[in-house]
Design a protein around this nucleic acid. Structure first.
Lengths: 342, 342
DNA sequence: CTGAAAGCGCTAACAA
DNA sequence: TTGTTAGCGCTTTCAG
């Protein structure tokens, strides 16, 4: 590695000091246009590439961001990375990936250690890591710049980006009700994923507002996985008074519900409406395509990276909390309730 | 950022020179045990973390690897990253993600530029990027250390990791034939993905060996996507002499074939056997679960990272080509041919 | 507007 | 076995 040609070679060729070259490199003011041109020309002629490492050492910034995640859904992670990378690209940063188990209790000190080794300038925490209080507090204590994606708790200390989970779940439920469904079951998300859990609140809110009762056993405790959705579906559909619609807190569980329904010989959406949340690719790759809620994960990650970069540049800038809205996406897996037809 | 405490503080506290501290830090020999202990103690007492940036500048190594990819399958990318990260973790490296379009012709110079800026010590190219000759040659010309994953071409210049695509495709076809299928159609992969295309050769090889003819229109040109699989399925199943089995060169296309079959009212596997390749999560999340070929992507990426790190450490080490085998995974989407039952 | 000098915090080469 | 002296290639400080 290492560029053989350095800032000194450029300075010599342009017959200026290295400081002037540095000024040109960093787009600093106070350089005469003619000088700037001469330097630029020398840079091009020598095909000079400044060493980021040397720059980092002198400027005390790595121009690297860390992205932490612990999510079994590859698509979610991919969107996260794509969004963060978009912001990084436009700001001259690079992205280090930091998958870490949210159950590991040493993560805070490990990440803080990497920060102090000047591996990166700050980190983005995505759910469920953004809900781990010990981690967030630990990093804050070590003064690691950070922003949170979809934190479930109170929004105060660190900048964050979130979406309207609860409202979207409410809207989805209202849509099901408007289609004539009254016996609607819900497959709740993993209890450690706070944002996913607020979707349950949105469901209950809509049911209550419509004056519909929800039997206790119509809210099934899922774990965000396809398998837990399959179990939920099997359990809910085995009931004597089975629901006409099942709303799962994410698409993987919804896909599991669909398989369970098929095992019982039920047709979707004729016998049962199913809907999910997140709008991951599987939603349109199963049959029938799932009604879901599109989550702007990529935009959220991009915004989170922007907030983090701003915070790194201006450490005293104010904490910000940004909301990016999710939208309903009606497809083929939901339809009028059977009774409503009769 | 930046550790306030430096190697000098440690040296002062341990009453040795900074060079000795450096020796301890890098596990170099020729340090008396007692001295080493004193230094270690000082490091712990001060909670010292050496700056990677300073180390990089002096040692001319970043201890960062770049991972390039351009694959629409999030699961594939996730496995790739997980594998590379595993090798990185055990060698003290970090991973920078570099998604780049394989159609972009400037990528080689862009990546070479990043390398010369000392952003990373080397890169791993995954398919289809590992098949882009201009990219591979461009990077080699700029002397960027690299290893390739599943390159389709001749294995000579750069170290690489590959799998037995063609053989696995042949075995899958032989399995279908052993189940009584004679009219087997194949949905080929994207022509730019050389490794995926060699699967076609494996299919044809087995058919030929069994003395079965393959009508020209029984090899459908797919594009690796779910949608192209759906189209392939629609086209193949609309034929008057429709196949009793369809083998798709990847799982997403196989999932598309399943949907097309369902639209025609065909039951899988009773009326039609379907199988895929790659064994991505969707294979077991659709109904019925897909017979497929498990690709050891993660192990391949891990091995590729190991080869790259070795190459960085010992630039003169020999080029290596490692094969990691793929295995058949029979599930519910394949069964005996209808005719065979009769 | 421009430059000289002094680091940033570590490793490498050579002495001792 | 240990230390000394130079850098690595930039940015920053402060003069001019």
């Amino acid at each position: 590695m290492s560029s053989r040609i350095t800032i000194e070679d450029v300075a010599a060729l342009a017959r200026v000091s290295i400081k002037t070259v540095s000024r040109v490199l960093n787009d600093e003011p106070n350089v005469q246009i003619s000088t700037r041109q001469r330097v630029t020309e020398a840079i091009n002629r020598l095909n000079f590439r400044p060493s980021r490492v040397a720059r980092s050492l002198a400027a005390r910034r790595t121009f690297i961001l860390g992205l932490m995640y612990d999510n079994p859904c590859a698509h979610y992670v991919a969107k996260l990375q794509a969004g963060a990378l978009r912001a990084c690209a436009s700001e001259g940063y690079d992205l280090l990936v930091l998958p870490r188990s949210y159950l590991n209790t040493d993560t805070a000190s490990e990440i803080a250690s990497l920060y102090r080794q000047s591996r990166f300038d700050g980190v983005i925490l995505s759910p469920p890591l953004s809900d781990v209080t010990a981690l967030v507090q630990g990093l804050r204590q070590e003064r690691v710049p950070l922003t949170l994606i979809s934190p479930g708790g109170a929004l105060v200390e660190s900048s964050s980006v979130h979406t309207n989970d609860q409202e979207a779940a409410r809207l989805m439920t209202e849509y099901l009700i408007s289609m004539g469904h009254r016996d609607i079951a819900f497959v709740a998300g993993h209890p450690d994923h706070v944002a996913v859990c607020t979707r349950t609140a949105g469901f209950l809110e809509a049911m209550q507002a419509a004056g519909l009762s929800v039997p206790d056993d119509f809210v099934y405790a899922g774990l965000n996985s396809f398998e837990s959705g399959e179990q939920a579906g099997a359990a809910l559909l085995a009931k004597p008074e089975r629901p006409t619609a099942i709303f799962a807190a994410n698409d993987e569980m919804a896909a599991g519900v669909c398989v369970a329904a098929r095992h019982r010989g039920l047709d979707i959406p004729r016998d049962l409406s199913v809907c999910g949340f997140d709008d991951i690719p599987i939603a349109i790759q199963v049959w029938p395509a799932l009604t879901s809620v599109t989550q702007p994960i990529q935009d959220m990650a991009e915004k989170a990276a922007e907030l983090l970069i701003r915070q790194i540049k201006e450490p005293d800038s104010a904490v910000e909390h940004v909301e990016i809205r999710s939208e309903l996406m009606v497809r083929e897996s939901t339809y009028r309730a059977p009774e409503a037809d009769a």
